[in-house]
Simulated scan of single mutants.
Amino acid sequence: MTLIPTDPGGARIAEAVQAARLYYFQDLTMAAIARELDVSRSTVSRLISYARSSGLVEIRITTPQGRAPQVEQALCDAYGIRAHVVPVAESVSDLDRLDKVALFAARLLGSFFDSDMVMGVAWGTTLSAVGRHLTPKRTHNAHVVQLNGAGNTRTTGISYASDIVRGFAHAYGARPQEFPVPAFFDHPETRTHLWRERSISRVLALQDRMDVAVFSIGAVGGQVPSHVYSAGYLENEDVVALRADGVVGDIATVFFRGDGSWDGIALNERASGPFLDRFREVPRRLCIISGEEKLAGLRGALAGGLVTDLVIDDLSAAALVAQQATAHR
């Protein structure tokens, strides 16, 4: 647990920090803290809750080597990743499942994004949900950059993607950098020429400096479809071409096959998302998954070495482990 330095001019912040120090560092009970501060127990409870929700306190759980839960350890052994499995009741809806996974991912993200870092964010249904749960954290000289354009033939997509990027940046006191280009260009040569423009190359250079990339896997189907498939980004002929190319999913609107390969997929030549060979060089690549309909895409991403950290619901994680075991029989 870490107490974040704060502005001492805020009376409530100062009280919250004091209560948190007594609670976490001195192991005092709520009643003892109430006597120490001459306030009620309910006030102490509110102060500690405020300290957690406002980012004054960070709580980290570490797992001893070799002592991870069974499913997490199985994923680590199979794919060489850091896996975080989120328990979710079987009776909840797909939307509630996504929300619980997004909440966990938001708290985890705050534990390894810090000052002087660059975070790349892919827009979409899952990242929008994560953004609603981010806990504020003070950083300095940090940047949040959009990974791919969001415009299409029906809408600019700017406000949707910008809201996500700015929400992440605001939570961490970072500088937001939108990427005001289409998700897919009509012609590959348009992207080639535009990438030479100084205003665009500046964004690309920031992407090349990423310390953390946060994304989900785009997939067709399920009660919570991926935004790229549900919001008019792909024409019917695009979907047909993707199926012919054996595509199983995408990261930031760049597509890949079940074996993790992405070369020779025609639509990638027109995509504004990151080149996946360079994307693999990002030190930390956090993938957030909710729902078994994304498992085919997740397996492809894992096969391509595109994921270092995974947050996934327990039912999907168990299914992934079972599929891995079956594939190696």
Rank of each mutant, 00 (worst) to 15 (best):
T2H: 15
G9C: 04
A11N: 13
A14W: 12
A19H: 07
A19P: 06
Y23C: 11
Q26N: 09
Q26F: 08
L28Y: 09
T29M: 06
A31N: 15
D38G: 15
S42K: 09
G55Y: 04
E58G: 12
R60N: 12
I61E: 10
T63G: 00
T63D: 06
P64A: 10
G66E: 12
P69D: 11
E72R: 08
Q73H: 08
L75Y: 02
I81M: 00
V86Q: 05
V88F: 08
V88E: 11
A89Y: 04
A89P: 01
S93I: 02
D94I: 00
L95A: 13
F113M: 13
S115K: 11
M119G: 07
A122L: 01
L127Q: 09
P136F: 09
N141Q: 13
N141S: 13
V144W: 13
T153S: 15
T153F: 14
R154V: 11
G157W: 07
I164K: 05
G167N: 13
F179V: 04
P182I: 03
F184D: 05
F184W: 01
F185E: 07
E189R: 14
L194V: 09
W195E: 13
R196D: 14
R196H: 15
E197C: 15
I200W: 12
S201L: 05
L206P: 02
Q207E: 13
A213T: 01
V214F: 02
I217M: 00
A219V: 07
V224W: 10
V224L: 10
L234G: 01
N236S: 15
A244V: 00
A252M: 03
T253F: 10
V254Y: 06
S272T: 01
G273V: 03
F275K: 14
L276R: 03
E281G: 02
P283H: 06
R285Q: 06
L286P: 00
L298R: 05
G300N: 09
A303T: 02
G304S: 00
D309P: 05
L310M: 07
S316T: 02
H328R: 05
R329I: 05
